[in-house]
Design a protein around this nucleic acid. Structure first.
Lengths: 125, 125
DNA sequence: CCACCAGCTTACCTAAAAGTCAGTACCTTA
DNA sequence: TAAGGTACTGACTTTTAGGTAAGCTGGTGG
């Protein structure tokens, strides 16, 4: 690895961007970077899944938080809820276009975290 | 925009990845996706900055949370603290290589959030 | 006739995150 | 002599996220 650059080359328009308090992007960021929000979005990036699949996939999530997180993401237009009127009930969740766009950015981030986590958290600097 | 794909084409190795509870990546993810963690990392992606700059940049942050967030990110090896022994004190913060790597993934995410936030949060679906 | 499945909702409670505010050190400028 | 800038720390309180556990629906299998 080469020297660490002191300024980022990425096209930034954050001059007065995300930083102001009360900016809507703060809220949106809170939703998608919430403890379970990321996991759900990542899980759905692998394709449509039903309630019980998600519950199993996002290990440790409670039903309450699953419901809450799904509602928030649906309200934000990131995921789609498809309830089939069958008995026993069957509800499928999937990403919307917008959610898919987002997950494209989220997946590399989570992958990076996954790769670096052990080194970082359990010492071995 | 075309049809929404049902499965993501990205190379995923999450089969038994981030999802297990107690996995270190959950902790790391919590650090970097914390309310202020993202903002600080993004701010530093624009280059080295001192304490008071960051305080102004991440509008609304308290001194306590700034200190706490900086410490966590430093412990994770994502940022570097450079204290000069001058009076009045001067402390500069910058990204490490690892932090720079991460910010490369974070910046597009935040940019996306910034662009989509208004639409999403204030209706106008 | 009872229990069970899936997909929730609700009420209640705890723990963790974050805010408030005061204080500290040291020197400079008014 | 007093106020102010910089980079903090610590005590205390509030807010919010999250966990636990129970209940509901309405057919179906035992």
């Amino acid at each position: 690895m080469e020297a660490v650059p002191q300024a980022v080359p990425l096209p930034l328009a954050f001059a007065d961007g995300v930083f102001p308090a009360g900016c809507p992007s703060r809220t949106l960021l809170d939703h998608i970077t919430s403890k379970w929000g990321v996991l759900i979005l990542i899980a759905l990036s692998e394709g449509e899944q039903r309630w019980s699949d998600l519950r199993r996939r996002a290990e440790g999530i409670s039903e309450k938080m699953l419901a809450q997180t799904l509602k928030t993401l649906e309200r934000d237009g990131l995921i789609r809820r498809n309830a089939q009127p069958v008995i026993p009930p069957r509800v499928d969740y999937s990403l919307t276009e917008r959610g898919y766009e987002l997950s494209g950015l989220l997946v590399p981030l989570v992958a990076w975290a996954f790769e670096n986590a052990e080194d970082i958290i359990n010492g071995s600097r």
